[in-house]
Design a protein around this nucleic acid. Structure first.
Lengths: 334, 334
DNA sequence: ATGAAAGCGCTAACAC
DNA sequence: GTGTTAGCGCTTTCAT
């Protein structure tokens, strides 16, 4: 049986309350008493039971993090930002993978609430009505990190994905391209359908460029599927001379498909994409890309959550972080 | 105030104990009663408080996972394997990043124990004496996942890193190379000093090849540092014609350094490495590599931990998983 | 500055 | 089958 607060109290000839005060840094303890108690704690190797503490105080100093897939660098990077700020504020993290399945997401929210987390950071690339309802019902603070909330109800930290996509496509347009394809993840996901694709469409329309249906290629977001995608593009009447990709993994898949078809990036096809990992920099040519500040997205989300958990006044609960376009070699520089 | 088990009991005209039985699937409940209670639970939206349950039962159905850095694909992939098996057995995961700092690792172990986790999965690439002591003192099951324990005390799931390294180097030797360099992460880490380097040295010695001191290049394990590493190698009297790299990220860094020096892989320099991410496949030429079964390492670790937590008989607590060398294009095929 | 005592919401004997 | 009751280890009034 582990040492309890009661053991320490007896050993130090004080009450549990006093030990509790010492442990929690309550100033109302005479220095001499504090010293005596601290010594006993040390000697006995007392370690407060966080579960008992959580029950008594109704605070667990634990937050929940629900993520589609921690093995994807997008979410791993975000989570690291969350974790570092969580550590600063002495919160632990319960982390769960949802695989973007709405049913599972609902389950997980329920599960985390049952564990009495003090707050929740939720990530996905689409929010279903069921999830939205569940999230609304919760009585703890919730922040969406790097996650589009099409109805803009919840505290959120994000970049302007649509605008970024439009600017990326504009780079291609500025380089003289008329035939620009968009290679995307599934359009069942809001982030692709409502943000990235819309940005692409807006930029194309603004430039008076037409968008043949075939120029919009939907993949399952994997390297391998994107690799195959070039086969759908290469024989088109107006073969695209430039491509905007939804992220760097599919950009690299496509680029390798292009290369294995005997063509060269950027000579034959120029490319730009969202950057979620080191891939964009590791491949040759290096990819010109929208650098998404993933770590910061996570860190700021967690900071926001701490404020919400402390009932602090928060002016803007919809935080927008800046992004950068990093010019590398998949677009020729003028 | 949330609904408690007492509210449900009153509403259903039964005792708390009966509600508890229903919630926990205890068979000693009359079907009619069960139905009535279930209905009340549904109607009131009762959600058991896991903290109270944890205090009363002394089980939290939560395990701790301590990882150097979740944003590194090696650990992200491992963690995903852990998480999936944890889900199967209905455990939650508290995940913390240690940045491999021994002091922080000790803190985190203490912290997780305080949270009353039922088990712990620890990962690092080196285990300090302090950490070892802390781990030994713990009274809960602990498994090391993908982590070298040079003293072989703890339950572990791993691959034979040393043997794999030797086999990788042997591939280079078989291709006729005499001058083979090893580009590594920090030798302060056991995995590099005791496993990968030893495998390299063994293979070289067995083949009667000499190892000039300069052939062993220590990097900080980053892409950028590895990129620079070629500068230390290229002007050597016997410039290496082949390189064994500790992982794919530094392999790619080095390869790009080689390429930007005007040389070609595999024509001028052949390469092989440990594969921790999609990088090995995404770059061109694709890297011949030792595929480390990261997901499985995690999954098996968690499975082992469940057995330990259930006090099941476990024959082998030191599990060794197979690995594969994937032949791609950074070594010419004969 | 310190102690006594009442919970926090649940599980687990034990009794019936 | 079901109810009663005593904790689990701590925080938190409320006295003193």
């Amino acid at each position: 049986m582990a040492i309890t607060i009661y053991d320490v109290a007896r050993e130090a000839n004080v009450s549990m309350a006093t030990v509790s005060r010492v442990v929690n840094g309550n100033p109302n303890v005479k220095p001499a008493t504090r010293k005596k108690v601290t010594a006993c704690i040390e000697r006995l190797g007392y370690r407060p039971n966080a579960v008992a503490r959580g029950l008594a105080s109704r605070k667990t100093t634990t937050i929940g993090v629900i993520v589609p897939d921690i093995s994807k660098s997008y979410y791993a990077e975000l989570s690291r930002g969350i974790a570092d700020v969580a550590t600063m504020y002495e919160y632990n993290i319960i982390l769960s993978n949802s695989d973007k399945r709405s049913l599972r997401e609902v389950e997980l929210i329920e599960d985390h609430l049952g564990k009495q987390v003090d707050g929740l950071i939720f990530m996905s690339d689409s929010i279903s009505d069921d999830v939205r309802k569940e999230l609304k019902l919760a009585s703890i603070p919730i922040v969406l990190a790097g996650t589009l909330d099409s109805e803009m109800n919840f505290p959120t930290v994000n970049i302007e994905n649509k605008e970024a996509a439009a600017r990326a496509v504009q780079e291609l347009i500025d380089n003289g391209h008329k035939h620009i394809a968009f290679i995307s993840g599934p359009f069942s996901r809001d982030i692709n359908r409502l943000s990235k694709k819309m940005g692409y469409v807006d930029a194309m329309k603004a430039a008076g460029l037409s968008i043949p249906e075939e120029f919009i290629v939907e993949t399952d977001n994997t390297y391998d599927d994107a690799y195959e995608a070039w086969n759908r593009l290469k024989n088109l009447p107006n073969r695209p001379s430039a491509v905007f990709a939804g992220n760097d993994e599919i950009a690299v898949g496509l680029m390798n498909g292009i290369r294995d078809d005997g063509l060269t990036v950027p000579k034959d096809v120029e490319m730009i994409c969202f950057q979620h990992s080191i891939l964009a920099r590791a491949v040759r040519p290096q990819l010109t890309a929208i650098r998404v500040p993933l770590y910061d997205l996570g860190a700021v989300s967690m900071r926001l959550l701490t404020k919400l958990m402390n009932n602090e006044e928060v002016e803007h609960t919809q935080v927008v972080l800046p992004y950068q376009i990093e010019h590398r070699d998949s677009i020729q520089r003028k």
